[in-house]
């Protein structure tokens, strides 16, 4: 929040907001509460010459949903208890064994990069995956906001909350890759007011080859040349 008594209306704070939620009124800067995702960048930026930015220590439910999904420094204490928008996914797969050979992990991060979205519209983007009958990752904080995890229906009281991004995570068998790509196309058409970034997680074959990349290309899609690679140096080793 901005202390209007302190604000001198210089406008130096405006560019730091990733979602352009700060506007300059005649005498002072003001935050558009509807657009604000409570990421805390304006407060941490320390750009304000008169320190007019304050961060409320606690936000009421459901406003707190914005902060825990958008501010990497805020834990999901009201839901999963973890940090961030998703789970540890493959970062510790060498010890957790969450992604096994013969399975593909899919992560759809809605709102990323840098656009944001409401939970109401996230529901529309998640629907095609629900229709595939996938199981949304139960430890994911977005799943915890669902009233019906089979249909990806979210709790009514959180639907108007806007977040910088939130991740849908699920596992599929490789034979369902074409179905998932179809669902991605459907979700893409539904994402008229936002974007989403998609990731595919694979347990590497014993010979070092990455499975499912060729299958993806046959479907007409390419993986990025850059990737996250778990080197397998963690212990104790998972049996996968």
């Amino acid at each position: 929040m901005i202390d209007k008594e302190l604000c001198i209306g210089c406008g130096d704070c405006l560019p730091v907001c990733p979602v352009k939620a700060i506007g300059l009124e005649t005498e002072y800067a003001e935050i558009n509460e509807e657009m604000c995702v409570e990421c805390g960048v304006c407060y941490r930026a320390k750009r304000c010459p008169v320190e007019a930015f304050k961060q409320a220590p606690d936000l009421p439910w459901p406003r707190i949903v914005r902060r825990v999904f958008s501010d990497p420094n805020a834990p999901h204490s009201a839901t999963t208890g973890g940090w961030g928008r998703g789970t540890a996914e493959m970062k510790s797969n060498d010890v957790t064994g969450r992604y096994k050979r013969g399975m593909v992990g899919i992560a759809v991060e809605i709102g990323r990069p840098g656009v944001g979205e409401t939970i109401r519209n996230i529901e529309k983007i998640a629907a095609p995956f629900a229709r595939l009958g996938v199981e949304f990752e139960p430890l994911n904080p977005l799943t915890s906001l669902m009233e019906d995890t089979k249909k990806a229906i979210f709790k009514e009281d959180v639907k108007n909350e806007r977040v910088l991004s939130a991740i849908i995570e699920f596992l599929i068998e490789p034979s369902r890759l074409a179905e998932v790509v179809g669902a991605l196309e459907e979700s893409s058409a539904a994402a008229t007011e936002t974007v989403f970034s998609v990731a595919m997680i694979n347990r590497v074959n014993p010979d070092g080859a990455v499975p499912n990349i060729d299958a993806l290309e046959k479907l007409g899609y390419r993986a990025s040349p850059n990737a996250k690679v778990n080197l397998g140096l963690g212990r104790p080793k998972a049996e996968v």
């Binding site: 994402a191 008229t192 936002t194 590497v204 397998g232």
Partner: peptide, 27 residues
């Protein structure tokens, strides 16, 4: 991968981006 091959590490798991979807005119 080439560094891993050189120093004797076999990668365990990969996570590849499949790009940005939706209304990319917003980017």
């Amino acid at each position: 991968r080439s560094i891993c091959d050189k120093i004797g590490i076999v990668p365990h798991t990969t996570n590849h981006s499949l790009g940005v979807w939706g209304n990319t005119s917003l980017l």
